[in-house]
């Protein structure tokens, strides 16, 4: 390979490295956004210890298994009236008072409404938590759920 060809190779590799660094910049921007979000959550937890405890209760009793982390919902529940998915929990503060929400958690949701009345029953329903969550844990969980808010601009949910 001639010296000129080698110089060309070095130049092309330099350009490729610059391109790779630019791509790494976008990875970095994404990681920075995640880090900021995490830092904000940590700050919130420090400022509002009850909400932080409630988030721990939410995970402890596997609420996130159906309602997802942060109560965003989205787990499939065939023919459920809430769009064939388990409903999210981001609008609870608009529809419930704390005592009503605690009662709903204690009783669970034995029957989930059908999206299509002629279709099958949705397979998932919420069991009663009467014997599992009580006292301070229930107060913390309710405080956490009532603190959830949808992202700015999202329309009000029809359920929950």
């Amino acid at each position: 390979m001639s010296v000129t060809a080698q110089k060309l190779v070095v130049a092309l590799l330099s350009l490729a490295l610059v391109a790779a660094l630019v791509a790494a910049g976008s990875v970095d921007a994404r990681r920075q956004a995640e880090a900021r979000k995490h830092a904000e959550a940590m700050l919130d937890d420090a400022a509002q210890p009850q909400i932080a405890r409630g988030r721990a209760v939410y995970t402890k009793y596997s609420c996130n298994a159906c309602h997802a982390a942060g109560g965003t919902g989205g787990i499939m529940n065939l023919n459920a009236e809430s769009g064939g998915k388990v409903n999210g929990l981001l609008h609870l503060s608009e529809s419930y008072r704390p005592a009503e929400l605690a009662e709903k958690i204690r009783n669970g949701v034995p029957t989930v409404g059908k999206g299509d009345p002629t279709g099958p029953d949705p397979p998932l329903h919420m069991p009663p938590y009467r014997d599992l969550i009580a006292g301070q844990e229930m107060r913390d969980l309710v405080a956490y759920l009532m603190s959830l808010r949808p992202p700015p601009g999202e329309a009000k949910s029809s359920a929950w």
């Binding site: 080698q6 190779v9 070095v10 590799l13 490295l17 790779a20 660094l21 790494a24 990681r31």
Partner: peptide, 27 residues
């Protein structure tokens, strides 16, 4: 110089490129 130095420069660039791509794919 310059032939061997150019080869080493190309190797250095390939190594850096590989390391940056790997880091981006698997931080």
């Amino acid at each position: 110089f310059p032939e061997h130095v150019l080869r080493e420069a190309a190797i250095a660039l390939v190594l850096l490129l590989g390391l940056v791509v790997y880091a981006s794919a698997r931080p």
